[in-house]
Structures are given as structure tokens and as C-alpha cells.
């Protein structure tokens, strides 16, 4: 895969192992994440793709008994995100996340988006107003909510809630945005809106997206990784993975013979 147009690296997993107590969920994963590109993680349920995604922002640190081995290098500063010396909070300040099920806080639309800024100590009304508007525009939901920023967020529709969650993540200008099956709880129209948004967002931010929907991976991503039983089976450009996979197991999955 030595191609001359290989883009800059944003992150790279190096020999990453992960354990839920005794059970090993990720096995020796090596994988690049390219800057300002969309990378999709596909694979059958339980293959470890969500586990892998949640390693990037150290979500596993919230629960006892979890253990990492290996590294995730984050560029340009070449930090090892998994190092015990690196504060998970600092990692989460740089890496945003959107969850499987929309999880807006039971607060107003405005406060949902402003939350990340407040956590960073920003309380200036003007700055908050500006950044909230910018984030909502970035998440393509501004026109729908601009007249009711003080409404409660859980009253929005599922698709709007998910775009609000994207705005919440965008408000703090993350370098990398993690999407954990962001459309699995949404109808096809809302799904389409999110996919379009992902396409738009990659101009600004690097995206790593877990999906169990292969068409979605094919539509939105530049690179695709196929995972199976905690291992990275194959990584490559999305076209190549879907048209001419190198590994038999990838091909079986993609053609629907497995999974």
C-alpha cells in the first residue's frame, strides 16, 4: 500500500491489546488513522470495533478492571493516548465522541452544546452564543432549532437529537471525532442526514466511525478496516476493501456469506 498520495497520519494504533478483566477483547491491532479522512470500522457484532473505538478517548477508564497494552499514537505531537501518564480528561478534550443512541442531557438545547465549553471554564455569554451557533451550524441543525434554543433537548426527534450530540462534540473543536454506530437508532431519512454531515465534517476533522451497515461504510468512508474476533483482519482504502479485498474472511463478510 505504498501509494504516493498517502495523507498525513492523525493517529496510529500500535500492537494494541485490550482486556475486560481477564477477557481479551482486542488482539494486537495495528492501524493508521489518516488526517481529515473518514475511516470506517466494520465487522460482525462482538468483533471489538466499539471496544477499539472507545480506546481512543479512554472511555474504558471509567470502569474498573479494564486494561490496555500497546499504544495509540496521536499526531502531530506523537502522544501515546494510552499512556498512564496521559490524563484521560486531556484526551477527551481533544477527541470528541458521538454515541450509538442519542444521549442529549435533560437540559436545554443551548446548554447541551455549551456544556463542553463550560467544562473548559468558558462562561462569557458572547463567546458561548457564538460557539453554540457555529457548532449547531456545523451539525446542520441550526435552522431547525435557532428559534428554540431554550427548549429541552430530549423533546427533539431522534435524528435531531443525534445531530445535537454531534454539535455538542463539535463545539469544542475536537481533532478527532469518534462515531459509535451513530445511526443505528435512526430512521433512513435521519440516517441520510447524518451521513451527509459526516461527509461535510471531514473537511474540518478526522473521523473514525463504527458501523454495522456496510453500505454506510461504503458511502461515507475513505478507508475501511474489517475486524473479526478482536483482530484487525484487513485495512485499506474503502474502494479496495469493497471491490477487491485481499483477505478471504473480509470477502466473506462483505459479500454476506458471513456475519
Amino acid at each position: 500500500m505504498q501509494i504516493h498520495d498517502t495523507p498525513a497520519l492523525k493517529a496510529e494504533a500500535r500492537n494494541l491489546n485490550f482486556y475486560y478483566s481477564e477477557k481479551q477483547a482486542l488482539k494486537g491491532i495495528n492501524m493508521p488513522i489518516y488526517d481529515k479522512k473518514v475511516t470506517a470500522l466494520i465487522g460482525p457484532s462482538g468483533c471489538g470495533k466499539s471496544t477499539y473505538l472507545r480506546s481512543f478517548n479512554r472511555m474504558h477508564d471509567l470502569y474498573p478492571g479494564n486494561r490496555y497494552e500497546g499504544e495509540i499514537r496521536f499526531f502531530p505531537d506523537n502522544t501515546n493516548l494510552l499512556s498512564p501518564d496521559v490524563d484521560p480528561i486531556e484526551v477527551r478534550m481533544r477527541i470528541g465522541m458521538v454515541f450509538q443512541k442519542p444521549n442529549p442531557f435533560p437540559k436545554t438545547i443551548f446548554e447541551n452544546v455549551a456544556y463542553g465549553l463550560r467544562v473548559r471554564g468558558e462562561n462569557n455569554k458572547r463567546t458561548l452564543d457564538d460557539k453554540v451557533e457555529h457548532a449547531l451550524k456545523g451539525a446542520a441543525i441550526w435552522d431547525e432549532v435557532k428559534d428554540r434554543l431554550q427548549d429541552m433537548a430530549p423533546n427533539l426527534s431522534g435524528g435531531q437529537q443525534q445531530r445535537l450530540c454531534i454539535a455538542r462534540a463539535l463545539a469544542t473543536d475536537p481533532e478527532l471525532l469518534l462515531f459509535d454506530e451513530p445511526t443505528s437508532a435512526l430512521d433512513p431519512i435521519a440516517t441520510g442526514a447524518i451521513e451527509e454531515l459526516v461527509h461535510e465534517l471531514k473537511k474540518r476533522v478526522t473521523i473514525l466511525i463504527v458501523t454495522h451497515n456496510m453500505q454506510q461504510a461504503a458511502r461515507v468512508s475513505d478507508y475501511t478496516a474489517y475486524m473479526y474476533l478482536g483482530e484487525m483482519i484487513e485495512f485499506g482504502k474503502t474502494d479496495q476493501i469493497f471491490i477487491k479485498p485481499n483477505d478471504k474472511r473480509t470477502e466473506d463478510y462483505i459479500t454476506g456469506r458471513m456475519g
Binding site: M59, L62, I89, M97, K101, P104, F105, Y115, V119, C165
Partner: peptide, 20 residues
């Protein structure tokens, strides 16, 4: 998921407790 949503934007435990 509410707790995770708060922590994911970089909140500390205390901020998560206080705001949520």
C-alpha cells in the same frame, strides 16, 4: 450513557456530578 456523554466532552467526575 448520560454519564459517558458528560465524560466524553472532557468533564471531570466532579463536573459530571455537579452538572448532571
Amino acid at each position: 450513557m448520560i454519564r459517558e456523554g458528560s465524560m466524553a466532552v472532557g468533564a471531570t467526575r466532579w463536573q459530571t456530578c455537579r452538572y448532571h
